[in-house]
Amino acid sequence: MDIFFLGTGAGMPAKLRNVTAIALKLLEERGAVWLFDAGEATQHQILHTSIKPRRIEKIFITHLHGDHIYGLPGLLSSRSFQGGDTEVTVYGPKGIKEFIHVSLSLSQTYLKYPLSVIEISEGIIFEDDQFSVEARLLDHGIPSYGYRVVEKDRPGTLLADKLIEAGVQPGPIFKKIKNGEAITLDDGSIIEPHHFLGPEQKGRIVTILGDTRFCENAILLAKNADLLVHEATFSKGEEKLASDYFHSTTHQAAEIAREAGCKQLCLTHISSRYDRNDWKELVDEAKEIFPNTDISEDFKEINIPLN
């Protein structure tokens, strides 16, 4: 599981930071990529990476401001030409369905794959046997959602040597035991899986928030997260400006991470008023409150190891 930043700026494209797009790479877990927001030129950013658009399975839109959605129609269109034939599901606030429909219909764009668009409300918006995704409203000028991605706990490592000692030969039985199935052998003895599996592997939690002021829902979504991705449009001391524009400062993002008990914080949505020489200062500001803080850059990747 890896987070890959395709765009990390605020408001409009800048030379050092494109507008918002974040890829959650789940290649080992499900052979897929989940995208969070798709600002202008997201597909151009992808061209400079190893990410394959045909691998994109789900797209989660935080809110409908242009710097988070203007790249979506182009990406959906190009995916057809890049070998994508599997279904894509787009989740987002009310209005995302109309935005996509109008963009594709007026441009007479034909998709060669099924597209499902789900307009969300608060709560669990997706769940299968591997992951669940929870959405909650944040505090922005328009409806803006944060997303909490929870990986479900995995069975422990199969203790193959112990199974062989018990007279079980490698083969299909190993897979059944790994999946938690009890097996009856030819001699009538029963192999209980919990005796032949290592400790259960705890699932990981990633929280990706849309634009927001400091709010309680951000803390709830980030509770005990392995990684929190939080906007920090402004530096500390600019709380009044951040509030006026419905954004957060470095200190406010760090306070969310601290109160939520996160393991790691990564700042994003950085205003172009701060150049490369200022970025370390922004990180240091957040570290005053939450030491394990990093700052995003376009094409930066963060691995989220198993617990």
Rank of each mutant, 00 (worst) to 15 (best):
L106D: 13
E134G: 10
R273P: 06
E231W: 07
W279Y: 13
A21C: 03
H269C: 03
L27V: 11
G66F: 09
G171N: 04
K152A: 06
T207Y: 00
A225W: 01
S50H: 08
S78L: 09
C215E: 07
H63R: 02
L220G: 02
L104P: 06
T49Q: 10
K223L: 12
E29N: 06
V19C: 12
D226P: 07
Y147Q: 02
F196T: 09
L185P: 04
C266F: 12
G83A: 02
K162F: 06
E239N: 13
D186L: 05
Q45E: 13
L115T: 03
K236L: 13
A160V: 15
A254K: 03
V88L: 14
H140M: 07
P93Q: 06
H230M: 14
Y245W: 12
L163M: 14
E216H: 06
G11A: 05
S103E: 11
D275W: 10
G167K: 14
S107H: 09
K263F: 13
L267N: 08
I302G: 07
F126V: 06
L27Q: 10
I177C: 08
L209W: 03
L106T: 14
I3W: 00
F290I: 04
A254R: 09
V117Q: 08
F290G: 02
L221A: 00
D85K: 15
H68Q: 12
D211R: 09
A10K: 13
A182K: 13
I256N: 01
T8R: 10
L138Q: 05
I56S: 02
T207Q: 05
I69M: 05
I177E: 08
G156A: 01
K240M: 04
T89E: 07
G167L: 11
V133R: 04
T293R: 02
G84T: 07
T20E: 10
N307D: 10
E239K: 15
T86P: 02
K52Y: 01
D129Q: 11
C262M: 09
E238W: 03
H269R: 13
Y91S: 04
D2V: 05
E301R: 15
E87P: 01
E40F: 14
R55G: 06
K236I: 12
T184L: 06
G84M: 04
R273M: 13
F131S: 08
I51R: 01
T212F: 07
K178A: 11
Q252G: 02
K263V: 09
P73D: 05
D298Y: 11
I205S: 01
